[in-house]
Design a protein around this nucleic acid. Structure first.
Lengths: 205, 205, 205, 205
DNA sequence: AATGAATGAGATTTCATTCAT
DNA sequence: TATGAATGAAATCTCATTCAT
């Protein structure tokens, strides 16, 4: 079926359509997560959004800005979802387990380390600052929780920053696949349970 | 400068000049580690080697091949150094600690996950297979050690693959820097100790 | 703040607000003079006017039209100011001097030659015709004056067109700056005097 | 006639062919003179040279560099030709006349003022500096001659800088065409004679 | 063994212009 | 009258690769 070619100028507005700016951001985020900054071109994003490159530049003045926005939105969302789970009224261990499970289920491997590396290399100083602040914020969320639980006596006293990063590092093990593409664990639930059991042994009193 | 005394017989041609092929490989490896596949161009490599692009193509038929070679060499070396340390006759815990310390000292963050991602995206199927095999090999080294120690009763029984990946994930925490660029730990030795203490709690009987 | 006393009757709508069309033209003129046709984008003009590009297109159907309008208005104004000065009842030499002084003071270097070049390259045939007519008109003003003064015997007989262009060429020397950005002459008055003295030697009887 | 398509890689070398770098520079110079910086794209230059854009970038790393090189070469050439004529052993007036005639004949209107304007707007600070130095150099050549002749008593004492710029300004009148494209003067020789007669009246003792 | 010259394809970005509101 | 959203075309520049020498 031949698609009618897009026309110049402002298109008629469809009420219940998502704002194009959001579509672009979501699409870009998805692509950047999958393939990284340099492997995704603005043309790729445009094509995936079914708009022209110029449209993307209408909303995001540079590729760096688009990446920055994508990272910021993503980290904000992650932080929120982390907070939400951490606030539930179940045991800390259960909360951590849920956190892992949900993240393994919800997302492809969101490899912060790599995002930050690409950011360092490719973003402007200002953009990088923004992204770093947001990243820090996200980590602090978990760090605070660790700190709190130390004080409550749920876990042993220790370096909260280290605990937080260790937790996240272990979480990422859940994504590991072997050479045939098979995951180590059968399900996200299993993964979460094993990972947290492992982690817990290290932090329990 | 004191000249070393002449050796007898016909001197080998340009004795202490490393073969250009090796220079290229080492330089490329260093650059790829720092900036990744897409951020390093063949021109970058050439310039860093003080040769022309054509020279590089003389030794490595494509960029993908150069990357592949770089990865293979690197993983081989890592595997070797791991093996060496694991064979020492000190306690397993001490061997692990030494392993971590040496790696934190010797290298910038060699983020395998990221190398593999770039490989997946950018290499040919054949090149990727090679790299995956080598990666697997490297991991298996640690996995085997874990397996062995389980059988020896040094650590508790569990999923050796998971243990190995957890170990590596925790090791990478040693590279973490905060926003001001400061490391979490004061020295590689401290980092190694803390990390292994943490890990050990999870795997001890 | 003291309010000015109400005037009787229905106030004209937004009395002291210049029509937007004029604001656009003036702004565009200023920018085109400073940077030329190709270096100023419609977005630049829009931004400088604090309106959107679409607004500019509402008044001027193409960039070429905007440029044309700008040139026409400018040349018209210049022609008028020339005429005005030439009609004063002081000696011809003094009129010329005043002309130079006023132009050096009033404007940045309005380099007609360049405007016409950009016009030739970028305008439609019709637009170009309009602009050329206006340019010619402007030059003719001075040419006529030269002709008249020849007949009056104020200056020697010669090629009036050549005299006119020579006059303008010498006038433009008043804008010259050296490499450090310093002008050759201390003030516009000095410049005007020197230039006209120079010119006068060539045209006096 | 179908042209055989160019092939990849280094082409076979033709002995008596001009170096491509020179061809590019000459072509670019010609185009920039005719249409200015912004109106000539790298693609235009490439096409006119019958090479690809990449070839141009092989020799000149940015468009600004190409423009800079073009200006530098041009000004160098002009300066040389000026010097040559000024060194001849005929009267100063005759030398000036010859200078004008030759320049009107040899070149399309080389409008330095405009080149410098485009340079100011479009070049990097460093490139601009180079160009300005070269421009200055060119002007100084004429200025020095003026100075010398003042001292020799050939012309009246005055501001040599001003004299030099006046001379060049008047020279450019030789290029003037009216609306129908007709020149003011019948030939370059006539133009030169009239212009220098005019100039001479202003500078003679 | 190594290079210099060249290319084709594609990347980011800019810009004049259009059109529904 | 004025705007916001979108486009097509082109501009600058990059890069992996090729090939004669």
């Amino acid at each position: 079926m031949k698609q009618s070619p897009r026309v110049l100028g402002r298109p008629r507005h469809d009420e219940n359509a998502k704002p194009k700016k959001d579509i672009v951001l979501e699409t870009a985020t998805r692509l950047f997560i999958k393939e990284g900054y340099k492997n995704i071109s603005m043309a790729d994003v445009a094509k995936a959004c079914n708009v022209t490159k110029a449209t993307i530049y209408y909303y995001y003045p540079t590729k760096g800005d688009l990446y920055t926005s994508a990272l910021l939105a993503m980290m904000d969302q992650i932080k929120l979802s982390i907070l939400q789970i951490l606030e539930e009224s179940i045991s800390f261990k259960d909360r951590l387990e849920k956190l892992v499970e949900i993240h393994l289920s919800a997302t492809v491997d969101i490899d912060m380390k790599n995002f930050m590396r690409e950011a360092t290399i490719n973003l402007s100083e200002f953009q990088l600052k923004e992204v770093q602040a947001s990243e820090n914020n996200m980590y602090k969320t978990i760090e605070h929780a660790m700190q709190l639980e130390m004080e409550l006596g749920t876990i042993r006293k220790g370096n909260a920053t280290f605990f937080a990063h260790s937790f996240l590092a272990l979480m990422s093990v859940g994504y590991v696949k072997d050479r045939e593409g098979k995951r180590i664990f059968q399900s996200e639930a299993t993964a979460a349970k094993e990972i947290i059991d492992f982690f817990w042994k290290s932090v329990e009193k």
